[in-house]
Amino acid sequence: MTRTFTCIICPNGCEITAQYEGTRVDAIEGATCPKGADYVRQELTDPRRNIATSILVEGGELPLVSVRLDKPIPKKDIFRVMEAINQLKVTAPTVIGQVVLPDVCGLGANVIITKNVAAL
């Protein structure tokens, strides 16, 4: 089978065409760097994404603080992870990199703070 992918690893957004059978990749064309081929292999076997959202913060100069995952999770688990993140609440001040939920849904990724929110 042949499928064309838009690589999302960097802003170049290479169009990569792959020939494959099931999870066996026979040929990859169009990637301008090695990461493109890795991306396509990952997409064909186990597509993963990072997600970013925000959670409530108490006593801060803003009502919300942004968070993301420190590594990508399977695409199919995105909404399950969003549900888990939506339960979270932190107290100001917050610091970039602070782990608010380790190993979210047992997927091996941590939910980390991405903004310094000062306490009021």
Binding site: T6, C7, I8, P11, G13, E15, R49, K75
Partner: peptide
Amino acid sequence: GLPRNIEQCLND
């Protein structure tokens, strides 16, 4: 918009 955003924000 950028192709990667079409892919990861719409197609996904």
